[in-house]
Amino acid sequence: MLTKRIIPCLDIKDGRTVKGVNFENLIDSGDPVELASRYALEGADELVFLDITATENKRKTLLELVEKVASVINIPFTVGGGISEVEDVKNLLDAGADKVSVNSSAVKNPNLINQIAERFGNQCLVVAIDAKILNNQWMVHLVGGKVPTEYQLVDWAKEAADRGAGEILFTSMENDGTKAGFAIDALNAVCDAVSIPVIASGGAGTREHFSDVFLKTNCDAALAASVFHFKQIAIPELKSYLKSQNINIRL
């Protein structure tokens, strides 16, 4: 039986891992290569690496860093940040990424999803969505959460899946960095809307938050950053705990 995935996320700015609260007040949380190897050893099911400055500063993801991380880990590795054309995807895969994640550029140019899926297969493409509540509706935001769009969360998730996304990575900006739990209702709405895997992100603070997201939603994976970086939750203990809650987990 397919197991639920635990995914540490490395938000990268200027070659370092950073983490903020509600996408702001970034603090340094370590060397990405070191963190990546630690997570692979600890039993992380996958790694996500997001160059959060890439779109903002119009820089391409640091391919050298991708290559360094890929050379030290033997688990799957998704890279996002600054992908605006098919050629960017090719460069990342050539550097050792297994999948790529697109966010802002897909909203600005939805056809990019079709192009990437047709060229590399949809299993290689994660569409990341950042959303928060505006006037009682979950609305998609861009550029690390700074710019609101016209898209409602569920509509955009559905469109992304229809266009060829292989997975949806949904980050609730209401929950991100708060350590108060995942956005269960919004995640359920996304899971109901699409038939591709959904990765829950934003709000993990305790191991119970992880069991909640797997027991109360149909999400396939849960992603977190600071609770892992700062060792508030250790991955091996988290996975044993989830297994004890009868959740399918690879130990």
Partner: peptide, 13 residues
Amino acid sequence: SSDVKVPCIGWNA
């Protein structure tokens, strides 16, 4: 078939 999530992504036995 469409009764499972596709693509199939993750660790399996």
